[in-house]
Design a protein around this nucleic acid. Structure first.
Lengths: 345, 345
DNA sequence: CTGAAAGCGCTTACAG
DNA sequence: CTGAAAGCGCTTACAG
């Protein structure tokens, strides 16, 4: 397919990079002046006529400032690196949208994606500093992550309520978890189970603990034994549930809450295969309120997490840091329980 | 939250970048030698003792080659930029996984994400060249996109069957579309409709044309009038379907095929709201076979597209290009029809 | 086998 | 208001 013109792209080609020097020559000025104009730092330093002449030359030659050289010279680039654990999670798409929005066109977003189910490694990030990022955004790191990581650039954490070595923007996942516990209690459930994520991240510990604690407070019992964990993936949570179900069933579990909607979908899938009726025999709920939760079978009760707002607030905070402004006071972003058929509507 | 230690990250801080010169001083060699060792270009050029001494110093000082300076000096970086239309689409997560896998640790993946529903703009990509990428991967560009874009780096296209100005890796979406038409005909449908994507991209035109053509060949009729389009988004496709349904219903439409699963979910959602039974009154199907299609209500019939393989093959091809090797002959990646309850199981 | 030197393209004090 | 010059940190011919 399409290999026809491959030659044209393999070689260094006849392409000649347009440099500031070329623009300078054309406009009859020095490269220093071109730099000033190209970067809009002309205020009270370059005459209008020269500005016009340079801009004309820039347009004619299609000049674009070389980021690499510019970064080296300035000592820092215009990238913001977003380190994220799981880009396949649609929730993450929302976060990215918010980040892009708040970052604006001045900064380029570079995504560093760890493999599925993997938490970002400090070593990975260390080598990212070789890019001289203007700033760093790290989503859901675990406590150990930032410990041995000398902070070399302005950094903001997302969804890292336990970490204090850098500012973080967080969501009130606990409130949503509590609302979920109350909802299930009001539906008459007495024994509940929890399916956790394997990643040892504070946000997940918080969801679990807030739910289980509130569940007991409102008179429900948690399934005995260790809380099972799965990767944030339909297949894996499906298997995990299938293994846990016999024990849970024997214990009288009538509701299971998952750390994420994606895992809850796996439970829905497994339940169907096992002939367990949802919500008749078992109520199921998750966190994220992904768009798919409105069309799942049955519709999934979920704690809506404000992904876009999370990305936006984190990026806005980072921007303030990078530009030496005072960041807005951080506030916990609200979560919200959305009840659907999977818990009896 | 977490603002406690903000100060430590705001300032330029006392951090001192470790340079090759520092390593050289420590090891008692020249920076040139450090460069050779750090890049593993020592073969027959540096003595073993010197190599050891330099490596020791590198470890002790925790030296990492500065990518920015290295890129400037070399004339090209180690980034591969992946230009993608819609990162929120989970299908894209699979593509990225495949790309990362094939790219290995030598190249860093930089994602350039256009806004939802937006096709990447040539201007955007032009400015990406300021990063001196080692290579470029462009997902589903439209024909006009590459036209005025002087190719300045090895480039491979994904899912761009119509473009010949650069090599592309493609999926046989037409075969899947035809299988879908045959499947619907075998279920006795006589009048079918199509809900397209708004993005004017060849892959979508191909899906639509292959489906509609085959549908007629096997004796079905397509709904009259223009094919409606929506953004790849639940809400928008839901609305689009709601508007189209009265006309389609009057015409006797009993099956609707969507350009993507995500749009099909929107149709499922709207159908439920309208009291249209799926699959009783209406069969629904999509393309992508996202994981959610097994838990949607009802389970969604879909043409499975090999996202991971697509990413992998494209990145492997690009690697060959970047490294001056002969790429493997390109083959069309297979698609596969997965039948579920939304078309009557 | 090793090092001195030039150069990548830009930015930024510093003179004028 | 404008330009000459140094410097960012690396890589790579080129001498030796």
């Amino acid at each position: 397919m399409g290999d026809r013109t491959q030659e044209s792209t393999t070689t260094g080609a006849p392409y000649q990079r347009v440099t500031a020097a070329m623009v300078a020559a054309r406009a009859g000025v020095s490269p220093a002046t071109v730099s000033l104009v190209a970067n809009g730092k002309t205020a009270g330093r370059v005459s209008v006529q020269i500005i016009n002449r340079v801009e004309e030359a820039i347009d004619e030659l299609n000049y674009v400032v070389d980021k690499v050289a510019s970064s080296l010279s300035r000592g820092s680039s215009s990238y913001v690196i977003l380190v994220a654990p799981d880009i396949a999670n649609p929730f993450f798409g929302k976060v990215i949208a918010g980040v892009k929005d708040a970052l604006g066109p001045t900064y380029q977003l570079l995504l560093s994606v760890s493999d599925v189910g993997q938490v970002p490694q400090a070593g990975d990030v260390r080598s990212l500093f070789a890019f001289r990022p203007a700033g760093l955004l790290v989503d859901a790191p675990n406590a150990q992550f930032l410990q041995d990581l000398a902070i070399e650039a302005p950094t903001v954490l997302l969804d890292a309520p336990d970490i204090t070595s850098a500012p973080s923007v967080d969501m009130d996942v606990a409130a949503g978890a509590r609302a979920l516990a109350e909802h299930l209690a009001s539906r008459g459930h007495q024994t509940v189970a929890y399916l956790d994520s394997v990643t040892a991240t504070a946000t997940f510990a918080l969801r679990r603990e807030a739910f289980l604690t509130r569940a007991e407070e409102v008179g429900m019992r948690a399934a005995a034994g260790e809380v099972p964990r799965s990767v944030i993936d339909l297949e894996d949570s499906s298997e995990t549930f299938t293994q846990a179900w016999p024990g849970w069933h024997a214990e009288g579990v009538t509701a299971v809450v998952c750390a994420t909607d994606t895992q809850a979908y796996g439970v829905l899938h497994a339940a169907r295969a096992l002939g367990v009726d949802v919500p008749g025999d078992l109520a199921v709920a998750g966190f994220d309120n992904l768009p798919y939760s409105q069309v799942s079978r049955p519709g999934l009760t979920s704690v809506e997490l404000p992904g876009r707002e999370l990305g936006h607030a984190a990026a806005a905070h980072l921007r303030a840091l990078m530009e030496g402004r005072e960041p807005d006071a951080a506030a916990l972003l609200c979560s919200r329980l959305v009840v659907r058929e999977s818990t009896g509507g």
